[in-house]
Write a protein that binds this DNA or RNA. Structure first.
Length: 271
DNA sequence: CACGGATCCTGATGGC
DNA sequence: TGCCATCAGGATCCGT
């Protein structure tokens, strides 16, 4: 579900509140994508040092090791003192001195994984091949273009793969490519320097705006304080097949790429 | 070894 | 409480 902006908004909504908390208990529900990787008891008595983000992973730093939390397609986090009783889709819970952290994830594509450190085997398997952070300094237009040169697949697939730059999911892939005027099917290696530069700016712009607006376009997204109803970001193309392009009026096209839906304007976006 | 496809799981939606 | 097919924000794994 959540792309980078939703994950970052989630992080911002509970990171400062949980920092410094002492963990009382850790409880698991139904299996998630991967096993926790340690006995829940191991977390008892540890302290939460802070919460960082890497790509779409939340990294919860503990006194001894860290938890890697991924929201998958349908995950959301709640944190507070008076959460309602756990429901059937709540699959991880951490009770702490500062409140209860809960992962709600109906489809269970999400995960919570314990790692001893950011570089250990468990963490490396998940974080090891991630591309650069789109909102960080290491995401620059020149090296982005250089990296794209080596990829012969469709640019949209390259964005989703997250090996060059992380955080762009299915919605924002369509949106950033529209903004950059690039057809999703264009081979990444064929993008000229100016066009990859436009894409670079589009990615930074769209993701920055989405974080600022509190997380998007997602119909059922809520942050860890349970706030929903954000909807300020109108999609230009995503889920708008058949509707008029907001720029040129032509019909938005829908197609599938690698089992995922893609939307674009054939007039505004060039091959 | 780079690429495309199948796969995990539950719920919402729409056609019949 | 109709039934069935299709689709949904992700990303790893497995053939070719």
């Amino acid at each position: 579900m959540p792309e980078l902006p939703e994950v970052e908004v989630t992080r911002l909504s509970f990171a400062s509140r949980i920092a410094g908390a002492h963990i009382h208990t850790a409880q698991l529900g139904k299996p998630l994508r991967w096993p926790l990787g340690c006995a829940p008891d191991l977390l008892h008595g540890q302290r939460v040092l802070g919460v960082r983000r890497r790509g779409k992973y939340l990294l919860i730093d503990l006194t001894d090791g860290l938890l890697l939390l991924h929201l998958g397609m349908s995950g959301s986090v709640s944190f507070g003192h008076d959460l309602p009783a756990p429901g059937k889709h709540d699959h991880f819970e951490l009770t702490t001195s500062h409140g209860t952290l809960r992962l709600h994830d109906p489809r269970r594509f999400g995960a919570v994984v314990y790692a001893l450190g950011e570089g250990d085997a468990a963490a490396h398997k998940l974080l090891g091949r991630l591309g650069v952070e789109p909102l960080g300094d290491s995401f620059d237009a020149a090296s982005f273009h250089t990296a794209l040169k080596l990829k012969k697949t469709a640019i949209k697939q390259v964005l989703l793969a997250g090996e060059i730059v992380v955080g762009v999911g299915n919605i924002y892939a369509s949106e950033t490519l529209f903004l950059a005027g690039i057809r999703p099917t264009t081979r990444a290696s064929r993008l000229s320097k100016p066009r990859s530069q436009r894409l670079h700016s589009a990615i930074r712009h769209v993701l920055t705006q989405a974080v600022a607006k509190g997380g998007s376009t997602l119909k059922d997204f809520s942050n860890a304080e349970g706030q929903t109803g954000y909807f300020q970001l109108e999609a230009m193309v995503y889920d708008r097949a058949g509707q008029p392009c907001k720029v040129c009026g032509g019909p938005i096209k829908g197609m599938r790429q690698g089992q995922r839906s893609t939307f674009f304007c054939a007039v505004c976006q060039k091959p």
